[in-house]
């Protein structure tokens, strides 16, 4: 009978070996970095000589705002949520500063934008944390509200000039020695806070905990409403910061500035290994995910593929990567 017991092999051939599984589930960074390396090599092959300091600078510059927005998704997804209002909040922040810069000055504009973002986050957080509204619905509704209000405000302030302040353009789009974009000045501290916050603080632990099992977290004394309100405020503030960078990068202030970032931000978090069901993932993977998407995007552009192909590939890659993760992390 022992011979019969050995007739396993019902598992699928790809990723079938334990080694592959272990690699993906325990050290997802390795395959992610490998994928990134492959994409960089492919870029070099397609356009020999393109990979250099300048190219790296451009990639980093483009990836930074995406990585910050993907950070919003990472944090919210860890608790089993999602933040679809990041696009509206980011656009709002960029727009507010642009329209106030001339009149009231840049610092005032930034403060007002951050306060407005925090308010939006507070409302979302109260909806999700206190009233238990599904985060998808709550943030979706919130983005409609923010978008409508900004549009309305735009019509009221149509007379004042709306120009991107020079500081923003510098931080958003300039690079140091062509390789280090100034936006890293914003990004590195933020990323450090998120990384350390998730791994080494009580609050980070609780994000994982309420995403994994809200009942257990409650029975252990965690008050999820406190955690969630803080979370959505933090997410909105991060989105506002990303909005500043995007307005500086694109040198435009439009109410739909960051709309096109919403879905890629979710994609970057998913590629980076954060589970949308909560309780699993981290920001390091998300950063790599944002880089992968950025490099891929530029690779496709340099291959001369139209926007359409880029979108199709984006979608396919998300499904494939998410499927690979699911395969290695779920059992039975």
């Amino acid at each position: 009978m022992r011979g019969v017991a050995g007739t396993s092999g019902a598992r699928s051939p790809w990723l079938g070996t334990a080694a592959w599984r272990g690699l993906f589930s325990d050290r997802p960074m390795i395959p992610l970095l490998a994928l990134l390396a492959v994409l960089v090599v492919a870029s070099e092959i397609v356009r020999p000589g393109i990979v250099g300091p300048e190219w790296i600078g451009i990639m980093l510059r483009a990836a930074v705002p995406l990585a910050i927005l993907a950070g919003c998704q990472t944090l919210t997804m860890l608790t089993g949520g999602i933040d679809l209002s990041v696009g509206a909040v980011a656009s709002m922040a960029g727009f507010v500063v642009a329209s106030l810069a001339a009149g009231s000055g840049v610092p005032t504009g930034i403060v007002i934008a951050l306060v407005a973002a925090a308010l939006a986050g507070l409302v979302s957080g109260i909806g999700v944390g206190v009233f238990r509204v599904h985060p998808l619905i709550m943030t979706l509704g919130m983005s409609l509200v923010v978008l409508g209000l900004v549009n309305f405000w735009q019509l009221q302030t149509i007379t004042t000039s709306t120009g991107i302040p020079g500081e923003f353009r510098t931080v958003g789009s300039s690079t140091l020695a062509k390789i280090l974009p100034y936006s890293l000045v914003v990004f590195v501290p933020l990323a450090a806070i998120i990384l350390v916050g998730l791994r080494r603080t009580g609050y980070g632990r609780l994000l994982y905990a309420i995403g994994d099992n809200p009942v257990a977290a409650r029975l252990s004394g965690a008050r999820s409403w406190q955690i969630l309100i803080v979370l959505y405020v933090v997410s909105a503030l991060l989105a506002a910061a990303a909005g500043f960078l995007i307005s500086g990068l694109t040198n435009t202030a439009s109410v739909s500035l960051a709309d096109s970032y919403v879905l890629p931000s979710v994609a970057a978090a998913v590629i980076g290994g954060t589970s949308i069901m909560g309780g699993r993932g981290g920001f390091a993977g998300t950063i790599v995910g944002a880089l992968i998407l950025t490099v891929l995007s530029s690779l496709l552009t340099s291959l001369g593929y139209p926007e359409a192909v880029r979108q199709i590939l984006f979608g396919s890659i998300i499904v494939a990567v998410a499927a690979a993760y699911t395969r290695v992390t779920t059992e039975s």
Binding site: L263, V266, A267, V319
Partner: peptide
Amino acid sequence: TRVPDIVVTLAMSFV
């Protein structure tokens, strides 16, 4: 793939 519907369909919206 057993990937959550929300992720699959979000990705397919690009496609």
